[in-house]
Design a protein around this nucleic acid. Structure first.
Lengths: 345, 345
DNA sequence: AAACTTATTTAAATCGTTTGCACAACCGAA
DNA sequence: TTCGGTTGTGCAAACGATTTAAATAAGTTT
């Protein structure tokens, strides 16, 4: 039996509406009434019931983060932790709570989101990386719920998104290898249906093309964001009759798999194979050897996503906020790619 | 303007209460009424308003996870990701949502929890690792809110907690080193105010004592759960006139710092220094060299915490559930400690 | 002193559910 | 026929806030 607005009102000798107005800093409340009511609130230990408030105001001051389907896979990645940290920090700063949501499959995902948004449990959603024809995106669009996509969205127009320029990032990463003298550069992709995979592949292709380098289909390997994928890709490449001398790998954890495998087989990095990676999670610097990686500002990505979503919600869906935010990236060069082939020729 | 229970009622030609009863599978609703109402719900796309429901039922079907104060530090650790994965998975399975909450300092933490629980936004809380005299624990206790502590709690009685037997785990880890022939074993602790640090230190001490090994105060170094701490500890130990030959390190990420530093200085692991660690995050296996680590069942820890809390909530605070759950641990031996000193003598 | 402002405060409706109680209809048994 | 017992449904009062419109008090003009 907790203390309600009525209890406060009675004790203070005013009406509930007055207490409510004190709470929301209504201008037409006299100094002394305000003081008196506040004192009583303090004395009774009053806390407004958020549910009741939400019911009438039709707003919950919370957002949900939808974890992508293969949560098992992605959760293993520091990447998501960092992203969520950015989201939670910003949301809390703006007075919003963050509800985590996931689903075993796409259907469950949509159900969860539907329950949260239709049920007015949250005001908006953050989607972490969308796929082509993502049913969740479709759901959110047709129902006109505010949401922000972390990742690209060019197939849908009028979507709020936060992303890197992944084409350019991959371009630079590849160019870096080329500038070191590499001519045979492989590519370890993430899942093909993720837009980020495609964008980075595009950048890689562009860089090779610009330098008139050969582009072999067998040098492009698809995988998941798992260490095993890296290991598998590595062993595939190293068994090729004509091996690449460098690899562009889409994720640090995958790169760790590559490096680990190379070490086991007695190959030297970067001498036998150079690696540039993406995401630059904190462990990248700490690995043996330290990993060259594109820092894509993960925390910033989450922080900005949260901020943009809340802005959209508070603007009541103003179209002007439905834009694409680009977070800058930066190539961090470390040992895994420090070796220049030119020097050894 | 979303569709409410009244809209469904009107269209179905029944009263709102009947619709509500259909929704909650009330026994005394006829088959045909139920079918009819359900069809209309489907047709109109009805979704119950969770806020309204919570208001009257005084229950929210959600719990919050309180991220410890130095979130910046801890978030960097795969450990938390794994823990949260366990929590979210179980909670969702039980029909609960998970709200993430954090605060920049202890005061903010208490405020956030107070808002969530007093404001009836969540039904209970999960605390990740408590400190001595944790103000959040105190708050939860005096207000009689259901909560579960991930970590030990023996100073407080009648608390629901989920934990490992950390004393025993550290004992085994240390014994493992001793069995390999090590006689000079150092200890890299976590923050001293964490109970987990103290428990493991105890286990380490006990193991040394049991084997009549020397216990030197300068071989015990306190740090944080950061790579830098490991690096610092390592350089401290290696500059000692009489170095330890093995280290017990409280966290994998800290161990990575140790290993990285050793590699930089040209020391060999495990020959020059063996390392056993705790937590066994996925990267432990993948590191160079692979890290011997005590697997404490992180996912299980989170899963169990969530399960126990929800059980407590649903039992309406039944004291019988206020017990301590112990999750089993297992020492995973890998290269960082595979070297036996006995063999080289 | 009446009339008119302006500054505060209150009463009452509302948000979308749940649920105790009342009631009607039907059943078989006395 | 009358009664006790089921079964199925509706009424209306909560739940704890916000908010519109109206009332009251206080201050200013004329």
């Amino acid at each position: 039996m907790s203390v309600t607005i009525k209890d406060v009102a009675k004790k203070a000798g005013v009406s509930p509406s007055t207490v409510s107005r004190v709470l929301s800093n209504h201008p037409r409340i006299s100094r002394e009434t305000s003081k008196k009511v506040r004192d009583i609130m303090e004395e009774l230990g009053y806390h407004p019931n958020i549910m009741a408030k939400s019911l009438v105001s039709k707003t919950t001051n919370s957002i949900c983060v939808i974890l992508p389907k293969p949560a098992e896979e992605l959760f293993n990645n520091l990447f998501f932790m960092e992203l969520i940290r950015g989201i939670v920090t910003q949301a809390n700063r703006s007075g919003y709570d963050v509800v985590l949501s996931s689903g075993a499959n796409e259907k469950e995902e949509v159900e969860a989101v539907s329950r949260l948004l239709h049920g007015r449990r949250v005001d908006g959603a953050i989607l972490l990386y969308s796929r082509h024809n993502d049913p969740v995106v479709e759901f959110l669009q047709t129902n006109q719920f505010p949401f922000v996509l972390v990742g690209r969205s060019d197939e849908y127009s009028g979507i709020l998104s936060v992303d890197n320029d992944n084409v350019q990032a991959a371009y630079e990463a590849t160019k870096h290898l080329i500038s070191l003298g590499h001519q045979r550069i492989g590519f370890v992709s993430g899942p093909q249906n993720l837009i980020v995979s495609q964008d980075r592949l595009l950048g890689y292709r562009k860089a090779l093309q610009d330098s008139n380098l050969e582009m072999r289909p067998e040098w492009i390997v698809e995988g998941e964001f798992l260490q095993e994928s890296g290991y598998r890709a590595m062993s595939f490449f190293m068994n090729l009759p004509e091996r690449p001398t460098a690899l562009v790998v889409l994720d640090d954890v995958v790169s760790f798999g590559v490096l680990r495998g190379l070490h086991e087989l007695g190959f030297k990095v970067p001498e036998d194979l150079s690696v540039v990676s993406f995401n630059n999670i904190t462990l990248a610097e700490l690995y043996t050897p330290p990993l060259t990686s594109v820092d894509i500002g993960i925390y910033q990505l989450g922080y900005t996503a949260s901020q943009a979503l809340i802005q959209l919600i508070q603007s009541d869906g103003d179209k002007q906020f439905l834009k694409r935010h680009i977070i800058p990236h930066r190539l961090i060069i470390r040992e895994s790619s420090m070796f220049s082939l030119n020097n050894t020729r």
